[in-house]
Computed example of a mutant assay.
Amino acid sequence: MLFLQNKKFSFSILFLLLLLTFQPLSSSQQLKKNVEFNTSKKDHCQKQISASLLFDITLHGFLLWASMGFLMPVGILVIRMSNREQCGRRLKFYFYIHTILQILSVLLVTAGAVMSIKKFNNAFNNNHQRIGIGLYGMIWLQALIGIVRPKRGSRTRSLWFFIHWMLGTAVSLLGVFNVYSGLFAYHEKTSRRIRIWTIIFTVEISLISFFYLFQDKLEYIQKQGVILGSDLVTSTDQGLSPNDKQKELPTDPC
């Protein structure tokens, strides 16, 4: 009887030891599962944040591309087309189109600036961010200068035009450069290819530059055609004899 009691006591102790042994194991396994779950959840959140950040960077790039890489240069081409117009509806039409394009450009730049301030880490440790913050101020200054435009014929008109032209040219050139630097910054941050976007932007700027230079020569080309036409008429008149000229004169009907 005593032997059976000792045996039961031994089994009880063994059962307790096994229970104490497996309980930490199950607890450690549960802890490991919790850690793995939290890690996977954290990785999923990081992926979502990365996708959101990638979308913000892409949207910021397109806003600034559309503004400084397209609307501003096209607005310059439009206002240059009005140089040959003295007055009338066409002059007002060109002016209003130029104004609308520049207002849209300023609005897009403002949206891109607000997005960069709220969404990105603005450490200003690269040229893209440094030039960008300067461009924001220059664009708004250019807009204010456009609002206080003096009338034609006033004394301050020439000074205003020079400042407006210089600032607009600087904004356009720096804007194009910053679009390129933004593409390279996008490549460094996301490791995505930018070759196709660089080619598209280069073709666009090349076409705009061609039309800009062509506008300077358009009036000269038209004058050359007028001069050539007058020379042909003069040479034709000189080649005709007096009798031929009399034959060409219309005769009054009887």
Rank of each mutant, 00 (worst) to 15 (best):
V176N: 07
L108A: 10
T169K: 08
R155I: 11
T110G: 03
M138Y: 00
A123H: 09
F177P: 01
F120I: 07
K151G: 15
L173T: 09
G137N: 02
L159N: 05
L159Y: 05
I147Q: 07
L104P: 00
I103W: 13
L173Q: 15
I117A: 12
K92S: 12
I117M: 09
L167G: 02
V148T: 14
Q129S: 10
R89Y: 13
K118I: 12
K118W: 08
L174S: 13
T99P: 01
Q102F: 08
T110R: 01
R155K: 08
N121I: 14
N178D: 14
T110H: 07
Q102R: 05
M166D: 04
G88D: 00
Q102M: 15
M115W: 07
G175A: 07
G132Q: 02
K151W: 13
F93G: 05
Q142W: 02
L167A: 00
R149Y: 11
K151E: 15
V106G: 05
A143F: 02
T110S: 09
L159W: 09
L104W: 06
V114M: 15
Q86R: 10
R152Q: 15
H128T: 07
L167E: 00
N178Y: 01
F120Y: 11
Q86Y: 08
K151M: 15
K151H: 15
V176G: 14
I133V: 09
C87W: 03
G134T: 06
G168T: 02
G132R: 04
G168K: 00
E85P: 11
I147W: 14
Q129L: 15
N178H: 05
G153K: 11
G132S: 06
R130Q: 07
G112L: 02
I139K: 00
G112H: 03
K92Q: 15
T169P: 04
T169A: 11
I97T: 12
C87M: 06
G134Y: 05
F124K: 09
G88A: 01
R152V: 09
